[in-house]
């Protein structure tokens, strides 16, 4: 298979950096709740899109956030981008909490984070050409000199392999192919030379050949600029190309956090196991095996189930414990965190 060598490369690369890594972003007990209102002032409750998420990310690390649609991935991502305001909890970027930032500093924070959007067809304003699209972040961040802006646009476009640059500068999004649009989106995210990239399903809506190229491009950019990357997806099959660690998200919280290989090899949380079982890897054996899929649907985020949110669908749920108490993070092996009562240790009840 093509990817094994690439994975090894990536692993080597990441372990090289591992030594001198310092924390870039740390998220602590983050809650993002949306208010539901009906009849003017009466509150109907909240949509608890992100409910108690904590993790840390190092400079140059790439992390995948995996989960079904509606599990709160996008809310988490938007909060990290500074679009959503957290209801509770903290985001600490380079040692400073986002809550304490002034408007000016928040703007500067936004320049530090690039955003690669999901849908390349909707992500680009149809009334601007490539040059205008790429110029916008530069104008906003205060690059006044037109020549300097053009030079940076040219450099970034070469970097994302949109060349010859002159051919693309004056094209409108509708004149570009899906892959080219994706490259423009990546160029827009990279043009301010951010420290971190948030990629929301960067290879969705592309066909397989383009998919690999885009993933390679993102990896090359990550390595070249020592970017931290948060890679958000519902597709576990592309994760291994990319990320050193995987966070599995279910109904607003992270249920398992581990190194990519460990998690893919030995999933601990029953939900992760189910998710992995459902991944479509091209394998002839899949045609004869029957896969166990958890019954039911993800819970409502307005009234999540008491205790562990996965317990109504979990085959291994412990009556009296899983449906009563919310699980905390256990660490059955170093660096592998799982929020499940099955891995309860004696001293941590």
């Amino acid at each position: 298979m093509i990817h094994t060598t690439e994975i090894k490369e990536a692993m080597k690369m990441s372990s090289k950096i591992q030594g001198q890594r310092e924390t870039l972003l740390s998220v602590h007990d983050l809650h993002v709740w949306y208010e539901l209102r009906r009849f003017g002032f009466s509150r109907m409750g909240y949509v608890k899109a992100v409910d108690g998420v904590s993790f840390e990310m190092a400079q140059g690390e790439s992390v995948a956030v995996v989960g079904e649609s509606g599990c709160g991935k996008s809310s988490l991502m938007k909060t990290i981008l500074g679009i959503n305001i957290p209801t509770r909890g903290e985001l600490i970027f380079e040692g400073r909490s986002l809550v304490d930032l002034t408007d000016e500093e928040l703007r500067n924070y936004r320049f530090e984070i690039g955003y690669v959007q999901q849908d390349p067809y909707a992500a680009l304003p149809p009334f601007m050409n490539v040059q205008q699209i790429l110029e916008e972040p530069l104008i906003i961040s205060g690059v006044k000199d037109r020549e300097k802006r053009l030079e940076r646009i040219r450099r970034t476009m070469t970097e994302v392999k949109l060349h010859p640059v002159e051919d693309f500068l004056h094209k409108f999004p509708h004149m570009l192919s899906g892959g080219q649009r994706r490259r423009v989106v990546i160029a827009r995210a990279m043009i301010l030379e951010p420290k971190m990239l948030v990629a929301d399903e960067p290879v969705s809506m592309l066909d397989a050949s383009v998919r690999v190229e885009i993933l390679k491009l993102l990896r090359a950019l990550q390595e070249k600029h020592r970017l931290s990357v948060i890679y958000i997806t519902h597709d576990l099959s592309t994760v291994k190309y990319f990320s050193e660690r995987i966070f599995v998200m279910y109904a607003g919280s992270l249920v398992e956090k581990a190194e990519t290989r460990r998690l893919l090899d030995i999933p601990l949380h029953p939900y992760t196991a189910a998710l992995l079982a459902a991944t479509s890897d091209p394998d002839a054996e899949n045609s004869i095996t029957y896969k166990e899929v958890p019954p039911g649907e993800p819970p409502s985020l307005v009234n999540p189930p008491k205790g562990c949110r996965f317990h109504p669908r979990c085959a291994r749920a412990i009556a009296g414990l899983c449906d009563e108490k919310e699980p905390v993070d256990f660490e059955p092996e170093p660096g592998h965190f799982v929020a499940c009562w099955l891995y309860k240790t004696e001293n941590s009840t």
Binding site: I83, Y115, A123, P125, E136, I140, R188
Partner: peptide, 26 residues
């Protein structure tokens, strides 16, 4: 609600800029 406005917010466009450069031209 379109994605390009979300992107504009993410790269720090001000409210005024979003209204006059992104919403109205459409």
């Amino acid at each position: 609600e379109s994605m390009y406005i979300e992107a504009a917010k993410a790269y720090g466009a001000s409210n005024r800029r979003i209204i006059f450069v992104y919403l109205i031209p459409r």
